[in-house]
């Protein structure tokens, strides 16, 4: 599987990374080298192997249905680059 400039562009878009046109080619090369290297995994027949779902052998921890958090809009929003009245503010979103 080979990655070309357009693929890098598409993936960068999915990942929301602005990518200068002139760097696409180089990045495609880097990704191809890494992907070619990881593809050595195909040497191993894994048809009878289950993928790992968790490294720890334990059951999923659950919390009780109690309100133990919240009520701190200042702490929640104080690191925001932009906001008002405890809202986060972003450039206008058109639906």
């Amino acid at each position: 599987m080979s990655v070309d400039k357009n693929t890098v562009k598409r993936v960068a878009k999915l990942a929301r990374l602005a990518f200068p046109e002139e760097r696409l080619e180089a990045m495609a090369g880097e990704l191809n080298r890494i992907l070619a290297w990881v593809e050595q995994l195909n040497e191993v027949d894994t048809s009878a192997v289950e993928p790992m779902t968790s490294v720890v052998k334990m059951s999923l921890k659950m919390r009780e249905d109690k309100v133990t958090d919240g009520g701190q809009p200042v702490a929640v929003t104080q690191n925001a680059p932009q906001g008002e009245d405890h809202f986060f503010a972003v450039p206008k979103v058109v639906e």
Binding site: L41, V44, V49, P51, M52
Partner: peptide, 14 residues
């Protein structure tokens, strides 16, 4: 091809 394959290898390594 990638993620599931890698997680299967992980099972084998474990």
């Amino acid at each position: 091809a990638y993620y599931i394959k890698a997680q299967k290898l992980r099972s084998l390594i474990a």
